[in-house]
């Protein structure tokens, strides 16, 4: 099944790396096709930033999102910009400390998390916010198998940070089960 995924936030949050990991996991470790692209602006930091990953068993002919299945939002600006492209019944995964849904589109599956707070307090490193988010995304969206994501993280993050990143990933992944349990 084709999956169109967008991850958005602001520059410096590791958004692009998150996209690379998802794409790599799907295409190299889960044997599907995955095309990852990113929006480029002239600014290097702080501006709105997003990446798109298209995953499909078939050849990917159109490399950009036409209607997204999953939106992962780590900033208010990114959320506001891209929530409209989510298809009805689509999956919205967001950091509830960073994104205020306002009048959310009714027909969405909502998955809130406090990814940045978890990264800061539980893991002591804000820089792994993106990986916490990826763990949560993996559990919530089921777009890419967990094992594939773990392999992709191992080969994408700087050596010496692999342990930390895997911890962050697991923490995010478990957060999903915890939150579902509370429901």
């Amino acid at each position: 099944m084709k999956q169109e995924i967008r991850i958005t936030g602001f520059g410096g949050q590791g958004i692009i790396l998150a996209g690379v990991i998802v794409g790599k996991a799907a295409s190299i470790y889960a044997e599907k096709n995955a095309t990852m692209t990113q929006s480029y602006g002239p600014e290097a930091r702080g501006s709105s930033c997003s990446t798109q990953v298209i995953i499909d068993e078939q050849d990917i002919l159109y490399p950009y999102i036409r209607e997204s299945d999953v939106l992962v939002a780590l900033s208010q600006e990114g959320y506001a910009k891209f929530v409209g492209e989510l298809k009805p019944g689509g999956t919205l995964i967001y950091d509830e400390d960073l994104v205020n849904l306002g009048e959310a589109k009714k027909d969405l599956k909502l998955f809130p998390i406090q990814a940045q707070r978890i990264a800061e307090t539980d893991l002591g490193r804000r820089i792994v916010t993106n990986i916490v988010m990826l763990g949560y995304f993996t559990a919530a969206s089921e777009a890419v198998p967990k094992e594939a994501m773990i392999e992709a993280i191992k080969t994408s993050v700087p050596k010496g940070t692999i342990e930390l990143n895997l911890q962050a990933f697991e923490r995010g992944y478990d957060e999903h089960a915890q939150r579902q349990g509370k429901k």
Partner: peptide, 9 residues
Amino acid sequence: ECVGHMVEK
């Protein structure tokens, strides 16, 4: 630019 920046296997 599209092919240049698109990431694939």
